[in-house]
Amino acid sequence: MNTANTMDPSTGHQHSTRCWWDVTRARWVCAPTAVEPDHPPVDVRDMLVVHTALLREFRLAPAAVARVPAGARRQAGRVDRHLGLLCDLLHHHHEGEDELLWPPLRERAPARAAALLDVAEAQHAGLDGALERVRDARRRWVAGSDAGSREELVAALQTLHGLLAEHLDTEERTLLPLAAAHLTEAQWRAVGEAGAAAIAKSQMLLVFGMFAYEGDPEVLTTMLAEAPAPVRVLVPRVAPRVYARRAAQVHGTPRP
């Protein structure tokens, strides 16, 4: 992604058309050399894996709902169960950022970054409202499974996806560089650990399979690095199959 006339909040460098945001490394790259912090940057690519999965699933969600015929309560229940998981994941992801990411960034990042954090917090508030509207629409849809409640939920999910896409783009371009440059490994790890702790054990394989579907294999290996050896071996093999089954039920294909 090429971006001109954008300031890197972690360094104060003014980007030009010769600079770009490298999504695979989660950092800006500036010709002829990369903008480097004074210390080795924290590896924040695990958040890109989470973002990619959430954005994909919320992008696909409106169509998953729209495909359910009026009165098909069993299929509506399957799709709603998946939507519940997605909404919970997004809520806990943002809760972890609110509690464990934004405060240390405000303390450690340059003062000019405060405005960027204000934007992110306002976007979280907007997403909280959109999530609540989706929850209300889900309840009405599951109760009635009629065409009217279905279309209401489709519209609510489309709005949520639009807000989420805008927020994640802002976060990846402006706040992940700040986190990589200014947070400690322990501070960053706490965010990931909080997110993992919020996932029910019964959902772990499904969620990791969701992450693995488009996630960087190197990053996925890192995410399991501290797990026991059997987990490190079995989860990468089993989790994609678990997600494929869920995708077939919800999206009509194991490879949505």
Rank of each mutant, 00 (worst) to 15 (best):
A76L: 06
V23R: 13
A156K: 00
L131R: 15
G12I: 07
T221K: 13
A197E: 12
E185D: 15
D22E: 13
A190Q: 11
N5D: 15
H124F: 07
L164P: 00
A120Q: 10
A200R: 15
R45D: 04
Q203M: 10
R138E: 04
R73W: 10
H251L: 08
W141V: 03
P240D: 07
A31P: 06
A31N: 11
R189C: 09
E107T: 11
L101Y: 00
H182C: 07
D216Y: 04
A111K: 14
C19K: 02
R189S: 14
G126C: 07
T184E: 04
A31E: 14
P37G: 02
D8W: 04
P69I: 08
W20D: 15
V50H: 08
R27A: 08
E166I: 11
E36V: 11
T184I: 05
A194H: 14
P9W: 02
L89K: 00
A225Q: 11
R18M: 12
P110T: 06
A61C: 07
Q14Y: 11
S202F: 03
R139M: 07
T52H: 13
L175P: 00
L160P: 00
P240G: 05
A137Q: 00
P240Q: 08
A239N: 05
R135N: 10
A125V: 12
E214A: 15
A70I: 08
F211Q: 02
G252N: 05
V50N: 01
L116D: 14
P32L: 04
P62Y: 03
L224K: 02
L175F: 05
R56L: 14
A247I: 03
L101H: 01
E218G: 15
G209D: 05
Q187R: 08
